[in-house]
Design a binder for these strands. Structure first.
Lengths: 124, 124, 124, 124
DNA sequence: GTGGTCTAGACCACT
DNA sequence: GTGGTCTAGACCACC
């Protein structure tokens, strides 16, 4: 994994794990790698890996059992909610940003449409 | 102005000025407040105000004349371009984020549409 | 049984057994479940179950006879004493905590009184 | 400050600061020592000091301004609430513990009363 | 084996 | 000078 230096590594790893849950690469209740293994996988320091799990716990994305390891939350609602939350956050930020520079929601939608058509062409 | 603590203040102030140019609250070539006045207006440290102008100069958004002050760029193309750049950045970030959590551009557009309809309803 | 993650499981199970003795759900000299059964009952690791008995033995709350199993202490005084000890510990911790945040014993008592009255009302 | 080894140092320092706020040794909005100074004062590592402030921020007990320092919350309600919260927590834990070992609220109150009388005698 | 805490020391961005 | 992040390495309690 390549890190974007402007965003803290622990946030990037958190995002990566949340993504894996939201896209169901990780199942509910599944055991996550140990702190040490996570550190190896992402080539980060165990302390940083530890932090990742602690922050994810704060967000109720996973939970930990002493001496047993860290697990993806078993709360189905929470998992469903996560994807919606993440999408909503992106949309809000996007529209807020557009509005901030004087572009209405309709215009914004049109710009996105045009962009996505061009992308499609480029690929084909 | 309330500052979002996760974004450097100088960036927030930069955004605010760029917004004012893009939305034509500030005209091309118009004189900007002195570093001291900017600091007072935004209740920021003069060092921070200074940094704002420096970075805006780097981006060719404004220029300084020794002893005269700082001015909005007079380059019309640059100004036009700014709005497009800012919008593009927002769109790219938005689509990238959506894709990251497994949502296609079409779905993303639909979500934005639905959202903006609901907002409209709420207001009316 | 749900475990409070901030307290070691073995302590929580110890508390539970001591409670059963103090409230006479377990009689003096009564045979306790085998380590294996305890582990099943509480859905804990056998190692943890083992530790529970070891620690309880240290506190003279129970004793083990090789090949026969583990038993609640037969010492009546010890049992009487246990309840007093546990209560004392709670009181000390409570008053110490209150004093720490600047609340005197009298005030503390009044707060508890008010609280217990409200609880009674709620139930009735 | 002497540390109770069974409780994480960072929690003990957090408690100490919260106590100072609740007992008004620290005023609302007051600047707290810098991470490095806190580390010196409490003879802990700067990392640990940093953690203290971050966790206190999570609890909305203080807030931080980039490059300026960490400050006690300015929210009066939050401060008022803190003392009540802390007291409530102690009471709940106390009564829950007592109930757990089969002692009713009334009995518990009487035990506390007796205890506090004895303490008074001892001192006089 | 697991996570939790702590120290030590470094570098960085922000004010 | 301020906090934020990260690495390195250690020790501990718990399962």
């Amino acid at each position: 994994m390549e890190y974007n230096s402007s965003i803290p590594i622990y946030l990037q790893v958190m995002m990566s794990i949340k993504r894996d849950i939201v896209t169901e690469r990780l199942k509910l209740g599944e055991k996550l790698p140990s702190v040490r293994d996570l550190a190896l996988q992402y080539t980060i320091n165990p302390n940083t890996a530890n932090r990742v799990y602690k922050e994810l716990e704060n967000e109720k994305v996973c939970f930990t059992r002493r001496g047993m390891g860290t697990f993806v939350t078993e709360d189905e609602d929470r998992a469903m909610q996560m994807k919606a939350e993440m999408a909503q956050e992106l949309i809000d930020e996007f529209l807020k940003g557009m509005k901030y520079i004087g572009i209405s929601a309709e215009e914004a939608i049109n710009l996105v449409k045009r962009q996505s058509k061009e992308e499609t062409k480029k690929i084909s």
